[in-house]
C-alpha cells in the first residue's frame, strides 16, 4: 500500500492540478447552462482566445505583474465575449439551434485566431519566479502547477460565497428558479443572465490563459478543451458549482492516476468513465438542486 502510494502520489497530485484548470474552464459552461439553459459550444473558442491573449502579452520573459495584466485582459475579453454570446443566444430557444449557432461562432473564431496568430504551436512561459520545480514526495514537481491549484481553489471559494451568500447570488438563483417573479420586483433579468454568461466566459478565458504554459495554444485546442469541459460538466451534473468541481476532480484523476494505472487503455478511459457515470447517475454526480431541466 505504501509503495503503491509512493509510486502514484505524484499522479494523484497532478490530477488535482489538471482538475484545477478544468474546473475554471468548465464552471462557466455549467453555470450558463444552469441559469440560461444555453448550450454554448463556443466555450472552447473563448478559452483558446484566453490562451492566445497570454501569447500576445507574454513573449519570452514573463514577470508576475505582466502575467497578472494578461489575466485581467483575458477576463475582460471573456466578459465581453460572454455578453455578446448572451445577446446572440437570447432569441434562440432550443439546444440544437444553440449548438448550430455557437459552433458556427466557434468555427469563425478559430479561423480568425489562426489568421491573427498563425498556425504554429505557440507557447506561453510561466512567470520566471514560478517556473522552477519544487520537491514533492521527494520528487521534483513544477511549482507553477501548485500555483494553479491555489488560484483555482481561491476562485472556487469566491464563486461559492458569491453564489450562496450574497444578494447577487440570491438574484441569480432566483432568476433560475422563477424569472417572472424576479422581473416583477423590478430587476432586469437580462442583465443578470448576461452577467452570468460574461462571468462564465471570463473564467473560461482565464482558465485557458492559466493552462497555456502547460497546454500551449494552437488551432484545434479549442475542440479538445470544449470536449473535456463538456465531459466535466455532464459528469458532475449540469448547472451546479459543486458538480463542476466534482466532475473536474474525477476527470483529472481519470486522466492522470487512471492513465498511470492502465496506460494500455489510456485512450478509452475518459469516455468509458463518462459513459459509466451517466448510465448509473444520468443527472451527474452532483446535479443542481433547482432542476429546470433533467
Amino acid at each position: 500500500m505504501l509503495s503503491w502510494l509512493d509510486a502514484n502520489a505524484l499522479s494523484m497530485l497532478n490530477g488535482v492540478a489538471l482538475a484545477a484548470v478544468l474546473f475554471l474552464i468548465a464552471v462557466g459552461l455549467s453555470l450558463v447552462f444552469g441559469t440560461m439553459d444555453v448550450l454554448n459550444l463556443a466555450h472552447g473558442a473563448v478559452s483558446l482566445t484566453g490562451a492566445y491573449i497570454g501569447v500576445a502579452f507574454l513573449e519570452r520573459d514573463t514577470t508576475i505583474p505582466l502575467f497578472v495584466t494578461a489575466v485581467l485582459a483575458a477576463a475582460a475579453f471573456g466578459m465581453v465575449a460572454g455578453v455578446v454570446l448572451a445577446a446572440m443566444t437570447s432569441s434562440v430557444g432550443d439546444h440544437l439551434r444553440q449548438a448550430l449557432l455557437t459552433l458556427g461562432v466557434a468555427l469563425i473564431a478559430g479561423d480568425v485566431l489562426r489568421e491573427i496568430f498563425g498556425a504554429d504551436v505557440e507557447s506561453v512561459s510561466a512567470p520566471a519566479s514560478l517556473a522552477g520545480a519544487v520537491s514533492v514526495f521527494g520528487r521534483p514537481y513544477p511549482l507553477y502547477r501548485l500555483v494553479i491549484i491555489g488560484i483555482s481553489a481561491a476562485i472556487a471559494v469566491v464563486l461559492y460565497i458569491v453564489l450562496e451568500r450574497t444578494r447577487v447570488g440570491a438574484l441569480v438563483r432566483a432568476t433560475v428558479a422563477d424569472r417572472a417573479m424576479v422581473e416583477a420586483i423590478g430587476v432586469r433579468t437580462n442583465l443578470v443572465l448576461g452577467g452570468v454568461f460574461g462571468a462564465g466566459a471570463a473564467l473560461a478565458a482565464i482558465g485557458g490563459l492559466l493552462a497555456a504554459p502547460i497546454l500551449g495554444a494552437q488551432p484545434g485546442l479549442d475542440d479538445t478543451v470544449l470536449l473535456l469541459a463538456l465531459v466535466v460538466v455532464v459528469v458532475g451534473g449540469l448547472g451546479s458549482l459543486r458538480g463542476a468541481l466534482v466532475g473536474a476532480l474525477l476527470v483529472g484523476q481519470v486522466q492522470t492516476l487512471g492513465v498511470a494505472l492502465a496506460s494500455e487503455y489510456a485512450s478509452f478511459l475518459l469516455f468509458a468513465a463518462m459513459a459509466i457515470v451517466l448510465l448509473t447517475r444520468p443527472r451527474g454526480l452532483l446535479p443542481a438542486k433547482t432542476g429546470a431541466h433533467g
Binding site: 505524484l10 499522479s11 502547460i214 486522466q255
Partner: peptide, 8 residues
C-alpha cells in the same frame, strides 16, 4: 496533454 503518468 499531460505526460506526468508516463514520465513517472
Amino acid at each position: 496533454s499531460d505526460w506526468q503518468p508516463f514520465l513517472s
